[in-house]
Simulated scan of single mutants.
Amino acid sequence: MTKRETIDTGTDKRYVRRDEQGRFKESVDVGKSLSADRRTKAKTKAKPGEGDKGDHHPSR
């Protein structure tokens, strides 16, 4: 799975993933993504850059 990157479109900010050719594969609004993350408790730990796949646990 590729990492998400943040893109500022000027009107809003979005998290995007790219496919092997560099084209946009998935795009989500940052505000909606972060609010959805707060509403649910994930069962899996996610790697850095893949926050939509589970909870991010900072290193201790």
Rank of each mutant, 00 (worst) to 15 (best):
D8C: 02
T9I: 08
T9G: 07
T11E: 12
D12Q: 12
K13C: 02
R14Q: 10
R14E: 11
R14T: 10
Y15V: 15
V16G: 02
R17Y: 13
R17E: 15
R17N: 13
R17A: 11
R18V: 04
R18I: 02
D19S: 13
D19N: 15
D19A: 09
E20N: 08
Q21F: 09
Q21I: 05
Q21Y: 04
G22N: 05
G22Q: 04
R23P: 00
F24Y: 02
F24L: 08
F24S: 00
F24Q: 06
E26R: 06
E26A: 09
E26T: 14
S27A: 08
S27F: 00
S27I: 06
V28M: 04
D29L: 14
V30R: 03
V30L: 14
V30K: 12
K32Y: 07
K32L: 11
S33Q: 11
L34H: 09
L34I: 14
L34K: 12
S35R: 14
S35I: 15
D37G: 03
R38Y: 07
T40I: 13
T40A: 11
T40F: 13
T40C: 09
K41R: 12
K41Y: 07
K41G: 00
T44D: 05
A46K: 00
K47L: 08
P48L: 12
G51T: 01
G51R: 04
G51E: 10
D52N: 01
G54Q: 03
D55E: 15
D55W: 10
H56N: 05
H57N: 05
P58D: 10
